[in-house]
Simulated scan of single mutants.
Amino acid sequence: MTAARYVLTISAGTAESLTAYAQGLAAFLASNGPRAFGHTATLPGVAATLLNFRRCAPHRLALSAATLAEAAAKLAVFGEHTSNPKLLAPQGLYANVVDRSAFDGVEDQDLDYLLALAASARHDQLARLWSVGFPVDWRHVYPELATERPVYLPPPPLHRRRYWPGPRTEGPPERTTTAAPPQAVVPEQAQPARLLTELTTLPTPLRVGRICDYLQDHIARLLDYPQGELPHTDSGFFDLGMSSVHLAQLRQHVIADTGFEPAETSAFDHPTIAAFATHLAHELAGDNEAAPGPELPLLHALGQDDIDRLSPHELERALAEVLS
């Protein structure tokens, strides 16, 4: 039986970042059964992650592969010959820069053409079209990948720029002295205890909202959101632009700030802020149920501001607590 072949796509903000990204991904895929979070990467999982869960940047590279080893070999070739584009296309590597697509939205006949290319195994033509900016809806082209869960892959290098209010004046670097590490004022466990205490004193309906606020704040920092902007709680983590690395960092924040260690795949199993917050609220409540304590305040104990924050569903639950 012939192995299934898929188009793989990567992109970055600059040519240098694309080359570094390709080299890093080649090394990762060439390792003996790349593993992360307890799972072994497969070609369908890698294809689903790259095609359906990564945003497109201007500098693009597309290729087709039937195995992870073939994909790694092609990516390595790109890293070696990126300075000579004429050598790339004959080896099934299609690299272009797309600042703004010249194509309009996909029409029905365009979609039929893309599906016909996939059905006739003309994957290189699909790769070539995507590399020049044609809007390929990979979920329609490869519907079998819809059931694949995203896998960990090395993230693309960050493209950071410095912005100066005026021309920099050249001069000798200022001499600085290395300060001694600051002494910790608060014990290590004080922060988790403080957050857990805050959650414990909140009524059940407000716990999820408080955790949502916490997750929104940390995700906004991880993704460098402008000040005052927060991610939507109902958007998928990958739709927000997060990678597997971001999810691992978020998990570490949760562990550090609550003392609770969620499963490594919990963010994949609950893939939105709202769903993850509900999961964490349930797990944290379960951890604290064994400890006796005063009853939590009910709806009549909430202030007007707290009541205004309740969603219709949360308000219904709070009323049910009062009437029970």
Rank of each mutant, 00 (worst) to 15 (best):
L319S: 01
L296R: 12
M1R: 13
R5S: 12
H232N: 04
A3K: 12
S235W: 10
F260L: 14
D112V: 00
H81L: 12
E295W: 00
F276L: 15
P156N: 02
G133M: 00
F268I: 14
A3H: 08
A36R: 07
L199M: 04
Q109D: 13
Q249D: 14
R55Q: 10
A47P: 10
H159D: 15
G105K: 08
S243P: 04
A193S: 05
H270P: 05
D306H: 00
L250T: 01
Y113Q: 12
R162I: 03
N96S: 15
H270N: 15
D108K: 10
H300Y: 05
W130T: 13
N32H: 13
R162G: 06
E316I: 01
V208S: 15
L247H: 08
P165L: 11
H246T: 02
L302Y: 05
V97P: 05
D305W: 06
F78P: 01
G286P: 02
F237W: 02
F37Q: 12
P154E: 08
A290I: 10
C212K: 10
L51I: 04
P156Y: 04
L299H: 05
T82F: 11
N288Y: 05
E70N: 06
T49A: 09
I255S: 04
A121S: 13
G286D: 08
R122K: 12
V186T: 11
P150Q: 07
P143Y: 05
I211C: 11
G105I: 00
C56A: 11
R210L: 11
T176K: 14
V151H: 07
D108F: 12
V254S: 06
L114F: 08
Y214N: 04
A184H: 05
L195G: 02
G171A: 14
R251E: 15
A89M: 02
S31W: 09
G13M: 02
P150M: 04
A3D: 15
E264F: 03
T272M: 07
H140E: 13
V208A: 15
P181K: 04
A146C: 01
V322E: 14
H81T: 07
G293Y: 06
L51E: 06
G293N: 03
A291N: 05
